[in-house]
Write a protein that binds this DNA or RNA. Structure first.
Lengths: 200, 200, 200, 200
DNA sequence: CATGAATGAGATTTCATTCAT
DNA sequence: GATGAATGAAATCTCATTCAT
């Protein structure tokens, strides 16, 4: 059945992510995935004919909500304020990640998959897309006179994106022993304050 | 002779780094290292009895100047200003990296080596040490009334460290097609301006 | 299928024994076992995930009938005479070995596997168990006034067990050019006569 | 210098024996021997051009006193009694072994070296020689009316030789936790009593 | 007299993948 | 819709041995 097949594929993908998260990229073998799912190795290959297809699906899963989050943020930027839009964008990710810490293992996808061209390319696209999204939201905020206009949009985007990535890494390295969401949102608020026009 | 042996070990380490950089962590095999150096595989094992020892040496190499840079920065913080100290700290890394882009592959060391406990631990230590160094420099700057005191030192350190990491990643993903040094120093200047007390 | 898998494992074990027998312990490589069975090396590892597991199975095979032979001997000791029991015990082994000379290579298992702790331990257990079995049979014979009671049971057991081992070694070294069974049984008869009470 | 060279060779041989004894035949590598002696691997090869030459020397060392012991036993058989000769023969070995337990690892030489033709042959020769020596001593004792004449000399020799081997193995397996000498001599006495003519 | 440097061959083991059922 | 059986290729690592110095 279509549905169950999709379901099985999803399980394989989730297991792969768990493995990357728990034991690192080198620990992900078809054998180990099969073992975890109580399946045979050959069954895995019914769903994904190449191991790299699993990783491609992992990257799709990693970026599943990217478009949605961006679109909704854009709408927010129109309906409410562009500052809220940026905050909403960040919050979407960190709320999601807080409930699914394993997925943060993929923040480093580009380096993990380096040298495997299809995967490297896809990881790169995701990275650059997200950066572009943030840049666009900041551009709007600058246009709306919310964020300072005398600083290059690109650099501001780099800062925000870096903070996001950097805190995810720290969260992982520190074994998830603080609230990614609170820390990130607090930091972004401070950053926004520093780079916004004073409202006095 | 001592020297030549050290030299050979260094070559192996440099080759391993080049391989991680060029083709990703999974491409680093003792065979490939040997091939590149025109040696036999068994010779590699005369210098490093376990493959992971090569990676451990890679991590040492990656963090080789960490203490020096930090110490010199501290001195700067005393002799000249604490702002200069921070700038010097960042500049040391990005100048070095600009001339040795391959080494930036290791910014992600923690995730690359996840699950290989000795390596994971070492990578973690390097990450946290650097973060602590930055935090110390910022603390001094706050004490000296240079950086705003009403913001948590930790968060400011996270920002700076994240910017450093984030730009390295972007540099790699964009194929080194901009000057890491200029971009980073520019960004750090802007950041410092935003989080310093206005001098008017 | 269960059966065929068990069968395959058995074949691997038998091949390993043949190799120890023919060319010595150092000649047993997974490659050679595979070659003999017309399999690939990786297939061997589907059945035994570590090479030492093959050797463990070899030891199991070597001691497969130990309990049965001992139990049956004990019954004999009760039903018929305790002298018959001892003779039956020895005859069981030498009859079996006469038809399967290769297995005698394992009489030396302890020394062959020395230093490989799981194997060394198992080999030791088999040795001591057999010795204990013989001792028990002799004890019964002494109790039944068949074997002289003024000699330590342990020493008598050592003698019988040693004769068994010693003749196996001689048989191997002399290239199986005499009947292990006849020679051993003859010797044991003489030994029993010498250490039994004279019936006159 | 000749002397020192002989001395070094001896050390290599002794180290090889210690290794067989402690960690088993598979643990004997030129590397490990060199390590133990604080030499380089290449130096080992100055003294023994092939590794198997070391093992050959080991076998020579193992059988070093065989001729002497046999010759002296023969003389004893002439001067004193043939019973004393047999006891002297056994005692020579077990006294030596008691002070040098490591050497007993080679009792199994034939199986350890099986498949390495020069070594296998040499081990076999030693085994058969010793057996022949014992047989000769027993033959003399039978001729002298000390040991029963109605039993095949060969079988009696097998018994004695087996007891010797069997107790060495037991001694090893039981971790040298009894006196090989006392146990063996006691057993041989009992055996002699059983197979000698009653002196009444 | 000893050693450092190097290596080819081979051992064990893992892995992704195929195929017949 | 799933699995058991099998495998070639490659990875890490060990070993005996050579050679120049």
């Amino acid at each position: 059945m279509e549905l169950s097949s999709v379901h099985k594929k999803a399980n394989i993908v989730l297991t792969a992510i768990d493995l990357i998260h728990e034991f690192g990229i080198h620990s992900v073998s078809t054998k180990e995935i099969a073992r975890r799912l109580g399946l045979s190795e050959s069954t895995i290959f019914k769903y994904f004919s190449k191991k790299n297809h699993i990783f491609l699906a992992v990257l799709e899963h990693f970026s599943l909500y990217d478009q949605d989050i961006f679109r909704t943020s854009l709408e927010k930027a129109k309906k409410s304020t562009s500052r809220e839009a940026i905050l909403f964008y960040m919050d979407s990710y960190v709320s999601y990640y807080e409930n699914y810490p394993q997925i943060t293992a993929l923040i480093q996808a580009y380096e993990l998959f380096r040298g495997i061209s299809e995967l490297e390319t896809r990881a790169k696209d995701i990275f650059l897309n997200r950066l572009a999204h943030i840049q666009e939201l900041i551009r709007i905020a600058q246009e709306a006179n919310v964020i300072k206009q005398d600083i290059s949009t690109e650099i501001l985007a780099d800062m925000v994106h870096s903070i996001f990535i950097g805190l995810c890494l720290k969260w992982r390295i520190k074994n998830f022993n603080f609230s990614l969401r609170k820390e990130t949102m607090h930091t972004i608020h401070l950053w926004l304050d520093a780079f916004s026009y004073k409202k006095d």
